[in-house]
Simulated scan of single mutants.
Amino acid sequence: MSQGFTGDRIILKDLGFYGYHGVFAEEAKLGQRFFIDLELGVDLSGPATTDRLSTGISYAEIYDVVKSAFETRRMKLLEAVAQNIVDAIFEAFQTVNWVVIRVRKPEAPIAMVRGEAAIELHRERKTQ
């Protein structure tokens, strides 16, 4: 793994959304629940020393960006849903250096007694 996934991070877990992503027609028609876990690599020394939100990133703003990216485009694959969210995060928050995202689909249309289908992407901001 890259050395870029170290240091300070903002962690948001179990962000729940209802969406229509999936390969099968019934998924597009009926929809289902999805859960997203995020880790954002960002220097938190500013808010840690000043105790001022203005020196950091609002968790509510992160949620809004994720929600918008999740709901804007219907995707067939969880990997594409996750990449769309990562791209939106990098665009909205210039101080985020890397993102680890897990998209979970607990009601995937496959035979599971218990559990969920999920993917996880690790992405670093591309430098020009």
Rank of each mutant, 00 (worst) to 15 (best):
S2K: 10
Q3M: 11
G4E: 14
G4P: 01
G4V: 12
F5M: 07
T6S: 10
G7A: 07
G7L: 01
G7R: 08
D8M: 04
D8L: 09
D8C: 08
R9V: 07
R9K: 15
I10E: 02
I11C: 13
I11R: 15
I11N: 09
L12V: 11
D14K: 15
D14H: 14
L15Q: 12
L15P: 02
L15W: 02
L15D: 03
G16E: 14
Y18Q: 05
Y20V: 06
Y20D: 06
G22A: 06
V23K: 09
F24R: 14
F24T: 07
E26I: 08
E27M: 11
A28P: 00
K29H: 08
L30P: 02
G31A: 08
Q32F: 03
Q32G: 15
R33N: 12
R33V: 10
F34M: 06
D37N: 15
D37V: 01
L38V: 05
L40N: 02
L40Y: 06
G41A: 07
D43N: 15
L44W: 05
S45D: 10
S45V: 08
G46N: 11
P47I: 09
T50Q: 04
D51M: 09
D51K: 05
R52I: 04
R52T: 07
R52A: 10
R52V: 05
L53Y: 06
L53T: 06
S54K: 13
T55L: 09
G56E: 04
G56T: 09
S58A: 14
Y59A: 13
A60S: 13
E61G: 00
Y63N: 03
Y63P: 00
D64M: 08
V65H: 02
V65E: 04
V66S: 01
V66F: 04
K67Q: 14
S68H: 14
F70V: 02
E71Y: 11
R74D: 00
L77R: 07
L78H: 03
A80Y: 04
V81P: 00
A82V: 00
A82T: 03
N84P: 00
N84M: 09
I85G: 04
V86Y: 01
E91F: 12
A92E: 10
A92V: 05
A92D: 04
A92P: 00
F93R: 03
Q94K: 12
Q94P: 03
T95N: 12
N97M: 09
V99R: 01
V99T: 08
V99A: 06
R102G: 08
R104I: 06
R104W: 00
R104T: 12
K105H: 06
P106Q: 04
E107Q: 14
A108Y: 02
A108H: 08
P109A: 12
V113T: 13
G115V: 04
G115F: 05
E116Y: 13
I119C: 06
I119M: 02
I119Q: 03
L121K: 06
L121R: 04
H122T: 09
H122A: 06
R123E: 07
E124I: 12
E124Y: 08
K126A: 13
K126Y: 11
Q128T: 12
